[in-house]
Every structure is written in C-alpha cells, then in structure tokens.
Write a protein that binds this DNA or RNA. Structure first.
Lengths: 106, 106
DNA sequence: AATCTATAAGTAGATACGCTACCTATACAT
DNA sequence: ATGTATAGGTAGCGTATCTACTTATAGATT
C-alpha cells in the first residue's frame, strides 16, 4: 500500500471503526490494522491529528480517562459523525465506481 | 466527487486513458471526463503538471506537433508506463479491497 | 538494576500533489 | 466584435499525510 493512497479516505475509515463503539486512539489504529487484514499500519502521527480534526469537525466527541495508570482519550461517534460516515460511504462508492470505470477494472 | 479524492490515484487514471493510444493533454482531460461518465472534470492545472511528471518518470513520452494551427503535445505510453499501469491496477485493487473491508461495504 | 517491549498520547516539520486562479493563442460561430 | 471551444501553460495555496521525534507507565526480560 503506497503511503498517500488513503489520502482523502482516512476520515471515513476512522469513522467506520468507531461505528461499533467508542475507542481510544491507539485502539483505533489497532482496529484499522485488524479490519484491513494488516494492510493498514497507520502511524500515530497520522491518526492522532486526524482524530482531533474529526473532533473539531463535530463528528467525534473525545473524553479523557485513566486506565491502568495510563491516560486515554476515548472518542465517540456523534450523531453528526454518523451522518458524515454515511456520506463518506456513498462518496467512496461513487469514487470506486469511477476509478473502476476509468482504470478498466477487468 | 470531493476534490482530494483522486489524490494518489491520478497517475493510474491518466496512464489508463493513454493505454488505448497516444493523446494530447486536452484529449486526456476529455477522455477522463467521458470514461468517468462526467464525474471527473479535472482542471488543466491538475492534468498538465501530472503529464509532465509522468513524462519525467519515464512513463510517458511527449512530442510536439501542430494541428490546425494549434500546438499540441502528444503523450504516448512507454513500456515502463505499461508496467506502471499494471502496478497501479493491482495497487488500486488492493486499496479498494482494504477500504471496502474497513468501511464495511454492505 | 537495567533494558526492552507494549501501551498510550502527542508535536514539529517536510513533502507532495491537487486545486484555484491566472495567462496566452488560434479557429470558428454569432 | 464578442464569445466559445480548443490547446497549452505557470504560480502559489492549502492541507492531509508522513517521518521522526518526545513523554510516560507497566510488565517482562536479561
């Protein structure tokens, strides 16, 4: 997987793994890794800023807690986030269709 | 189609429309538009620099000609370009699979 | 005791690339 | 004379992702 491929699609991916329940950043990275069959191994420097960005956008709400002596920031999908996720899915669907058509996905 | 979606995938799209034969830049834009069912309407400021970049990479070879009083730069897919296109296709295939898996393309 | 690994959060800065907004020019239709 | 389609291009912006780094705790290993 070339580095820049996820660009423009990361938001949807992050929102999707938070759909099944709240997670903290590190767990989001692990979930992306797991659900992609190991293909996605995104660095913290990519995911943490993305989570903050999505929080600023009102799609996630973040809350601090302490678990096992470690600080965690747990993110929960907001109602707006659910709508955003739905939009991301339709946009992905359209994009996939377009690229398939042009690329000649035989 | 949101602006940045094609990022990281444009090269493959351009190479793909040149697979069926040489085209000049303007015709590449039109071909992308047509083959995407109108979804892709990429500005010259996106496509022209991309063509130059692909030429520098050795994937295209460009040549000037004059048709109907207008200057044209016609781009032809090189052998390396064909290999690059094949690679782009497999990478797209993988990427699509991964995003589908994470996004839960139900 | 010291070191390593896993877990957990983050920031700073660089890079790349697509986009916006321009400019130039010819042919042809209005 | 103006507008539209065709054809080429550049300059600079924005920003999302990546690289590389820091800080910290818990537990395992040496």
């Amino acid at each position: 997987m070339k580095p820049d491929a996820v660009r423009g699609h990361l938001d949807g991916l992050v929102l999707a793994v938070l759909e099944s329940g709240p997670r903290h950043g590190y767990a989001v990275i692990e979930a992306l890794h797991a659900r992609s069959g190991g293909a996605l191994d995104l660095p913290t420097g990519t995911v943490y800023p993305a989570l903050r960005r999505l929080e600023r956008a009102g799609w996630l709400s973040g809350a601090w807690s302490t678990v096992g002596g470690r600080e965690r920031r747990t993110y929960t999908l907001t109602r707006a986030g659910r709508h955003a996720l739905a939009l991301q899915r339709t946009q992905w669907s359209e994009f996939r269709f377009v690229v398939d058509a042009v690329l000649g996905a035989t």
